[in-house]
């Protein structure tokens, strides 16, 4: 490794940060484009209902739709409950 390379590597590699951010956000948005319109609201409604019983953060509920075959679609709902510290 030359002297110059040493100095250069300490500079932030912003292109890879950009790529990571893009991969996440574009995948997320593509997913939304293909899913029915009610999904975001469904997710928020479910969050609101669960919040009546347990205090959870926005990103602990996720709803997604998968087409497993031509006739069958599966609605997947993930809820992560916080550790019960009571």
């Amino acid at each position: 490794m030359s002297l110059l390379d040493y100095f250069r590597s300490t500079k932030k590699n912003t292109a890879s940060t950009a790529k990571e951010r893009l991969q996440i956000i574009v995948a997320h948005e593509r997913n939304r484009r293909n899913s029915p319109d009610y999904l975001p609201q469904l997710e928020r409604d479910i969050l609101a209902v669960i919040r009546k019983y347990v205090d959870i953060a926005d990103d602990q509920v996720s709803v997604s739709l998968e087409k497993s075959s031509d006739e069958l679609s599966v609605l997947e709902l993930n809820v992560t409950f916080p550790d019960d510290k009571k």
């Binding site: 932030k12 912003t14 292109a15 940060t17 950009a18 951010r21």
Partner: peptide, 8 residues
């Protein structure tokens, strides 16, 4: 400018 938008 490009570095800035890359990193948000």
């Amino acid at each position: 400018v490009l570095n800035a938008s890359n990193s948000g």
